[in-house]
């Protein structure tokens, strides 16, 4: 029983009959929150194809895929943390860079197997530190992951000496990075595969189920026999492993790695997740929607680049996009409650 719950209110509830079951009336804002992204993505792509020179070229589309893939992989993974109601994992910036640097630096010396093992160890450490602090110590996820970002980036810079690592030009990694299936680079295929796998995990496994149900009602989930701390660690682990794979993909694409290579991934991934319609209040959302959000955000920044609009404006656009998306989400929730 909640100690804060005013007792008189409980009494009032006891007397008041249950409110009428909610009518399934689709208010405009609710419909918009659910489906607006489909319309916007379609309109954006269509108008870009018609009005923006160079958008519809094969080269450009490959380019969009290349840029979208690592951010998208981070975003589909981070969707788990957002759906569990813990806002986001800012430390993906450090994690992607760590995985990329480990991939190239370690594989140069000890081969790919050792590199993957080392990167997985790093991902595991991130997941445990973030997950334990948030899941067991009930610390605020934003602040926890802000601090692990800095600790992680600091360690990476220290250990890497801030230098840039290059892979061998004909290495397997570089070949994978340059590989394409038609106009679609392998990295984009990895994104699609990750999306499908994670969608399966979220929707069709007991673990994914508890992540969703935790985001909707933490207490009912605990009383349903769930070790909620482990669920949180699991959600962070999914994010960390995705960030690791994103790091590999990024390293493969450029065949170089440096500690500053993933700046801004935290925010772009969050933008994709929220624009896709996953609620920052937790519980509501899906991995497939995040993929849609990734497409929207990537196409948008590509169009801005093609139109020669500076990086500053792109940042502003992302900020406004997030503000709009969370506003729509908040208004839809309010409409849904009435």
């Amino acid at each position: 029983m909640s100690k804060n719950e005013p007792i008189t209110q409980i009494n009032a509830m006891a007397q008041a009959p249950e409110e009428q079951p909610k009518q399934k009336s689709r208010r405009g804002v609710e419909w918009f929150a659910e489906n607006g992204i489909f319309v916007f993505t379609a309109v954006l792509i269509l108008s870009a194809a018609i009005f923006v020179d160079g958008f519809a070229s094969l080269q450009n589309i490959t380019d969009v895929f290349h840029r979208a893939a690592p951010i998208g992989i981070v975003a589909v993974g981070m969707t788990f943390v957002v759906i569990s109601g813990n806002y986001l994992d800012l430390s993906v910036v450090a994690q992607v860079a760590t995985a990329a640097v480990i991939m190239i630096a370690v594989s140069n010396e000890y081969g790919y197997f050792a590199a993957v093992l080392a990167a997985m160890l790093a991902a595991l450490i991130y997941a445990i530190v973030n997950g334990v602090a948030v899941g067991y110590f009930k610390a605020n996820a934003v602040i926890v992951t802000l601090s692990t970002t800095y600790v992680g980036l600091g360690l990476l810079r220290l250990l890497s000496g801030g230098s840039i690592f290059f892979g061998p030009p004909d290495g397997a990694l570089a070949q994978f990075g340059a590989g394409k299936l038609g106009p679609v680079p392998y990295s984009a295929l990895v994104l699609v595969a990750m999306t499908l796998i994670l969608a399966f995990v979220l929707n069709r496994t007991n673990f994914g189920f508890t992540v969703r149900s935790f985001g909707i009602n933490e207490r009912a989930t605990r009383l349903g026999g769930t070790n909620t701390g482990l669920v949180i660690i699991g959600a962070f682990l999914v994010t960390s492993l995705s960030a690791m794979i994103a790091g590999f993909v990024l390293a493969a694409f450029s065949n170089t790695a440096v500690s500053a290579m993933s700046t801004g991934y935290d925010f772009q991934a969050l933008a994709a997740i929220i624009v896709g319609g996953t609620s920052v209040f937790g519980g509501k959302g899906s991995v497939l929607r995040t993929l849609l959000g990734v497409i929207f955000v990537s196409v948008l920044s590509n169009v801005l680049v093609l139109l020669n609009i500076g990086f500053g404006y792109q940042q502003m656009a992302l900020g406004v996009l997030i503000a709009l998306a969370v506003t729509v989400d908040a208004l839809a929730r309010r409409a849904g409650k009435k």
Partner: peptide, 14 residues
């Protein structure tokens, strides 16, 4: 079966 079913018992949007 808890006292406050909306808080402890059910995930209302599931």
């Amino acid at each position: 079966v808890p006292e406050e079913r909306r808080v402890d018992g059910l995930a209302m949007t599931m």
